[in-house]
Design a protein around this nucleic acid. Sequence first.
RNA 1: GGAGGGGUGGCUGAGUGGUUGAAAGCGGCGGUCUUGAAAACCGUUGAGCGUUUACGCGUUCCGGGGGUUCGAAUCCCUCCCCCUCCGCCA
Length: 425
Amino acid sequence: MHDINAIRQDPDAFDAALSTRGVAPCAAELLGLDDGRRAAIAEAQQLQTKRNEASKKIGQAKGQGDEAEAKRLMDEVAGLKDALQKAEEAERAANTALTDALATIPNLPLADVPVGADEDGNVELRRHGEPKAGSAEHFEIGEALGMMDFEIAAALSGSRFVVLRDGLARLDRALGNFMIDLHINEFGYRENALPVLVRDDAVFGTGQLPKFTEDLFRTENGYWLIPTAEVTLTNLVREQITDATKLPMRLTALTPCFRSEAGSAGRDTRGMIRQHQFTKVELVSITDAESGADELERKTQCAEEVLKRLGLPYRVMQLCTGDMGFGARKTYDLEVWLPGQNAYREISSISYCGDFQGRRMNARYRHEGDKQTHFVHTLNGSGLAVGRTLVAVLENYVNADGTVTVPEVLRPYMGGVEIIGEANG
RNA sequence: GGAGGGGUGGCUGAGUGGUUGAAAGCGGCGGUCUUGAAAACCGUUGAGCGUUUACGCGUUCCGGGGGUUCGAAUCCCUCCCCCUCCGCCA
């Protein structure tokens, strides 16, 4: 959600920034709605003042037992009621119109974000590790091991689901535990166990609603299944004034995520890359206005560290203006090397949202002794997507005989198993 | 799922139609006193929005939304949440 006052101060800058995302100029329209809104407020308030004064006098007259005077005053303001109701109705309508318009406009990119139309405009910032030569694809490896079953998953649930067994089921669990332990033990994140079903307000707060309903699953009685724990973690501070001494808050959770993948028909149909359900370790930070941008760099390093310790080659991309998500002001993607595809594939996306989500959630903070409140700044990032990490481990660690070596750091989480596909793995 | 009871400011808790943004207490902040602190005493202490160069003025908010009324924390409708008992249940 944008600040209409900021738009009023510099409408041209607003439109210019939006245009880098391919959004048509809309400041003029917004300011028109805002003028209407403020006129309606002024009108309603004037009438309210009149009414309040009259009511006060009536109260006084009644208090003194002067019924005749009270009656005279009541007759005097009788006509006010209708006008007031109309004015208040107009105020509500004008407010809604502006809010609705603002709610569907994406966030503004930071000034240092490269301008571009789509993913071709993204900029590679750095690489880590040596990409290996091609391997089998992860689903070939998994199916050969007899531990990855798309057929039975389809029978249960349809396409874009998978059943993992034995060593791979355990590897999946080990990956999630390893990641979350790293973040809570070494990077100061606090672990949360959270609902995966949430209501409208929460999903509006992080920006998936009202625009992106098709991407989400919804229960019959109106709950949304979270597409990412960003929704639940970020909304933990909604509708509150947080003491600034508690910032930055660094929050993490290991949860399942649910995505309808509407509109991605035909893409990544084979394998575990794009599923309706996957587990992910999410990293959210709640910061003040000053430290948000720095926190993005820190969070990116936290996510990178997971890949480093797993020994997976990757590169860091900075997304251009046209490829960033709705709520982001600046985004880094981590792309892991997949020998099976001979390509880098996204495994984490880390974004700084400024106060965009803070406004939508009415989440504020205050410095000690200050009267002024500010909207919190928020960041989110995957640290990492567990399913895709499993894919990367399979393709990077597969052996010539089809078994898979377990990365060293995961072995404590695997009960000491070193090779998946051998007798005890 | 059935029956009942509740949601008031940072907290506790009064308030069932009239100058109530809201008593009182606690907490917080400032001051007096004190070498300092405590105690005591005095004062102060919610969040938005509109308007104004500013001081200020106005307005909204007592779980959310709508309504009745000249006037609503108080009455009505509706939704949400919490608690107790019963039922069911991992």
